Amino acid sequence: MRIGVDLGGTKIEAIALDDRGNSLTRQRIPTPTGDYHATLDAVATLIGRIEQLTGMHGSVGIGTPGSPSPATGLIRNANSTCLNGQPLQQNFERLLNRPVRLANDADCFALSESIDGAGQGFHSVFGVIIGTGVGAGIVINGSLIPHANRIAGEWGHNPLPWPSATESPGEACYCGKKGCIETFLSGAGLHLDYRRETGLEISGPELSKRLEQQEQAAERVMARYENRLARSLATVINLLDPEVIVLGGGLSNLVRLYERIPRIWAEYIFSDVVRTRLLPPRHGDSSGVRGAAWLWPEGEDQY
């Protein structure tokens, strides 16, 4: 049995998978706010509950915001700031009394969609998260690529490509730079553009509703968003040339993206033909936690 944990800022979710990838049970609890040790205990309690329900002992993979530094092993770049500077993997291994594998949550999403999701059967998969933040994972032949610096897929912290005069220098990003892709393509970036267009502050579902009603302001904002996303993904294709790009996160639910983005990105891709496919996720919100479980491939010693 494989246990996967998605350690989010507001919730902790765990799943148990059998050898065929079938879900045995799935549990969710709130994340203790800003409390590192309470977070460790909550994950351990959740895993204990899973093993009690199934009557089995399992390997443990954990998807986290941020990533461990290759120099120190301490977590960095996590928006759940209580994790930063902490030896998360070592603490979990001591608490759970077994080896634990840790990966960025976007890496877990990409791995899940590559193994038995929308990217199944493709050799190269770029799995994108577009929601609160913008990140990605890169899977080649069913495995995450080796990370020299453990930052593969951090395309959200590259500058927006081919910026117009109105897009440059761009908004300040929490990373310390300006004009990062994340500041344009995250949910917050999309809502900021709508507020500038209309003066109104609205939610994601409300924006979707206004698009369905063909509100002109919403259409203008969405057209800019689609062009920016197409430009940004074009640079990924120019660099990695993946067979498939799978979108995840809240904004991946916008069905129109899968038709419109490929029409736009052709202008920016350095090729006479573009065979890369843009697909929605098969497992939706479950991809991250399933990918954490798959951090232990078949045949490896799991515990």
Rank of each mutant, 00 (worst) to 15 (best):
T235D: 07
D272E: 15
N22A: 15
K209I: 01
L102M: 07
G73K: 09
S114A: 15
A14M: 01
T31F: 09
H57R: 12
T235V: 14
N149P: 00
A152S: 12
H57K: 13
T10N: 05
H37M: 10
A38P: 06
L160M: 15
N104E: 02
P280S: 00
L257A: 11
R28Y: 03
G137D: 14
L160T: 10
R263L: 12
C180D: 13
L185P: 14
N149H: 14
F122N: 10
S287V: 03
H147F: 08
R26K: 14
S286D: 15
V274F: 08
V43M: 02
Y258D: 11
G131Y: 03
N79Y: 09
I269Q: 04
A223D: 15
S69F: 03
L229P: 06
D107K: 04
E267A: 13
S112Q: 10
P30D: 15
Q90S: 14
R196L: 10
G284Y: 07
R220V: 06
D6I: 04
L185V: 12
G9H: 12
E215W: 00
V125Y: 04
E298R: 11
E300Q: 12
G131N: 02
A230G: 10
Y303E: 08
L24Q: 10
R195I: 07
W162N: 04
V139H: 06
L233M: 15
R277V: 14
Y258E: 07
E113K: 09
I129R: 11
Y36F: 15
P205T: 04
G133C: 09
A136C: 11
G21L: 02
T54Q: 05
L240W: 13
I3G: 03
G288F: 01
A103Y: 01
N77P: 01
S252E: 07
G48I: 01
R76L: 05
I264W: 02
S203R: 07
I145A: 13
G4A: 07
V246R: 08
P280L: 07
R2Q: 09
G291K: 03
I47A: 06
E298G: 03
Y225N: 09
R260W: 04
V274E: 12
P68S: 03
L207P: 00
Q214D: 14
S168I: 09
R76W: 01
N97I: 00
A38C: 06
I140R: 05
S286R: 07
R277H: 13
G8E: 05
A44V: 13
V139A: 10
A38I: 06
E13K: 04
L257C: 09
E167T: 00
L247Q: 12
P159D: 12
R98N: 01
E259V: 14
V43N: 01
D41T: 15
Q120L: 06
G288V: 08
D18I: 03
D301V: 14
N97V: 01
G119T: 02
E167D: 12
A38V: 11
R150F: 01
I47G: 02
S168M: 14
S208M: 03
T81P: 00
L257E: 10
P159H: 08
E243G: 15
V100L: 00
S114Q: 11
G248D: 10
N149S: 13
I269T: 11
N22F: 13
E215P: 05
I62G: 02
L24M: 14
D35Y: 09
A188P: 04
R228F: 02
S252G: 13
L111Q: 06
S164A: 11
L40V: 05
I181T: 13
I29Q: 11
D116W: 04
I202H: 02
Q52Y: 04
V134R: 14
